[in-house]
Design a protein around this nucleic acid. Structure first.
Lengths: 217, 217
DNA sequence: TTAAGATATTTTGTATACAATATTTATAAT
DNA sequence: ATTATAAATATTGTATACAAAATATCTTAA
């Protein structure tokens, strides 16, 4: 006999709102009125408050005392700030992943690489972004640094829901991913680190170019 | 006639519990029983729950559904994981701080450097650790990357409340801080970055030595 | 005694009520 | 019409109640 582990309402609410934010059903800057969304989801404010706290932890919303919860809206500077963080953290994750990966994990990563390839010819960028996110996060997961995982996840989710368009062609992105994958497969830590660094650096530079900020090499 | 309550109760509760954790009045791994601590602080569970959510955001506690909130207890591996993150992020902050710092900010940093010096001859390490924390965080603040600030703050707070003893002599630490300060004063971004990297690298290596893990150069 | 099950107690999750504050709307004065 | 002020409404912050789940305690059987 095992317990039927019933899920918390707050967890359900959390996932619902998160989905709404990531798919832009709730748009950036929009206020989340508690009573309104709670009744929409058929719950009281108690589980909603717990859910909002979780979302703030992931920086998807901002809670301003006595004012309310707002879907986080990033400035261009904040985009760059987040990319600067990714540029430092993700190469670390790639290095560790290359050193530690098991064959099972490599197979899982391979699958996500294939997903990236599949979603390339889609018309909407949403699927492509999600596949890219999953590939990057799988590498962080393999690195087995929980804090790294969380910090990179927070950065990437914010960017995913806020940043319009793509910062490199799907073709180039896929090529980079393949190189990173090969380095991890071959347990070449330094290579994986370097490829990941260059992969992200190109995106920052394209972002800066797009927004007329001077890029660095 | 005006109301006295400026600040939220949840904010007060948050600060109280945070203080208890950082000063080890609440020890790592300990469970925080809601009704108990709420009545201790003279509030209901509502503001307490909000406070716990904030503490979880800062990773000082861990909330396990249906089980409760526990003061986070770090393993040796997690110490290293956090240091690896610091090693990547703080040099970035130091670089940016050197590039952007105003004269006013430099003066504020100078003051915190003096505090480090003053707390050196104290018998208990608590004051030293706090002064060190403030110096490092001021640099992150000057870098003006809010996300960087938060991530580094989270890392350093966890280490502060969990890690026993010191990883380098107060003298060496102060010497490093002075070099970092000089680089920021002179707007030498690359130097500041390098000095910060070496400063933290030495700590990681000492930690690994202490715990019998192989260090890297 | 120990192990397993039943019962009692504690603690968390959720709903709800109401006070404090923020926001909107209405009204008045310039 | 615009600005300032007051009233009305909406929304958040907090306390409280109670059900569900977890934990502790007590029984009973081997």
């Amino acid at each position: 006999m095992y317990t039927v582990h019933r899920e918390e309402l707050s967890e359900m609410v959390y996932r619902s709102i998160k989905e709404m934010i990531l798919t832009n059903q709730l748009s950036t800057g929009e206020k989340i009125v508690q009573e309104k969304i709670a009744s929409q989801l058929g719950v009281s404010r108690s589980p909603l408050l717990a859910a909002l706290a979780k979302l703030e932890r992931e920086m998807l919303i901002q809670i301003v005392p006595r004012k309310g919860a707002f879907v986080r809206k990033l400035s261009v500077k904040e985009f760059v700030d987040l990319y600067e963080i990714r540029l430092r953290l993700e190469p670390l994750g790639a290095y560790e992943a290359a050193v530690r990966r098991s064959d099972k994990q490599l197979k899982e990563l391979k699958k996500l690489l294939t997903e990236c390839e599949k979603s390339m010819n889609k018309t909407h960028t949403g699927g492509l972004k999600k596949a890219d996110y999953k590939f990057h996060m799988k590498i962080m997961e393999i690195s087995e640094n929980e804090f790294l995982y969380r910090m990179v996840s927070v950065s990437n989710m914010m960017l995913m829901s806020n940043l319009e368009g793509l910062l490199k062609t799907p073709e180039k992105s896929l090529k980079d991913h393949k190189n990173i994958f090969k380095a991890i497969a071959g347990r070449k830590g330094k290579n994986a680190e370097q490829f990941m660094y260059e992969h992200i650096l190109e995106s920052v530079n394209n972002l800066k170019k797009r927004e007329n900020i001077n890029a660095k090499d």
